[in-house]
């Protein structure tokens, strides 16, 4: 079946079985390999993307259920100031070990910060507990979210942040 998807602000036409999870459409039809396969059943968060700004597990979302919804993936999240700040914080705090979970982590964190610019530890717990990191980088994930939130609050927009060199 043919579907027309809005991914990272662009339209992609794909021809796949209607039950194909969005994950495999992104990875193998649109060649966006950043979204990862971990469990296939919504248990690990490696496949997290945004659908209309909300974090979803793309492994458990059939392509037929997406319609015109706007999808954002890790490849596109840096275009948003919140995403760019998180990416920078992830590097500055040196979060990554193997890195396989980190796209999903950043996507969940970006959805959190978009909703809750100054998250408490409880907010972080609630938003991030569905994202497994097998390497155990959780302490730094928490720290990087707080770091990104700090720069978030320290400036009204990404442009201001850039001028300040944050």
């Amino acid at each position: 079946m043919k579907f027309s998807l809005q991914v990272n602000g662009r339209t992609h036409d794909v021809d796949v079985d209607a039950d194909t999870p969005l994950l495999w459409v992104l990875r193998d039809e649109i060649d966006l390999k950043g979204t990862k396969f971990g469990c296939g059943v919504g248990l690990c968060g490696a496949c997290t993307v945004h659908l209309n700004g909300a974090p979803v597990r793309s492994c458990s979302l059939p392509v037929s259920g997406i319609g015109n919804g706007a999808i954002t993936t890790i490849e596109g999240i840096g275009d948003a100031p919140v995403g760019a700040r998180l990416q920078k914080a992830w590097i500055d705090i040196d979060v990554v070990q193997c890195g396989y979970c980190q796209a999903g982590q950043i996507m969940s964190a970006a959805a959190l910060l978009a909703r809750t610019p100054a998250p408490s530890d409880e907010d972080i717990d609630a938003a991030m507990n569905g994202n497994i990191c097998r390497c155990g980088t959780y302490l730094r994930i928490r720290k990087a979210i707080k770091e990104a939130a700090k720069t978030n609050l320290g400036s009204e927009s990404g442009a201001t942040a850039a001028r300040k060199g944050t």
Binding site: L32, K33, G34, T73, Q87, W90, D94, V95, V96, G99
Partner: peptide, 19 residues
């Protein structure tokens, strides 16, 4: 302390893994 050399690519979702 030297941050991981692949991290800038990982946080952008660039293809690096076997899969």
């Amino acid at each position: 302390s030297t941050p991981g050399v692949d991290s800038p690519r990982i946080v952008k979702g660039e293809p690096l893994f076997g899969i």
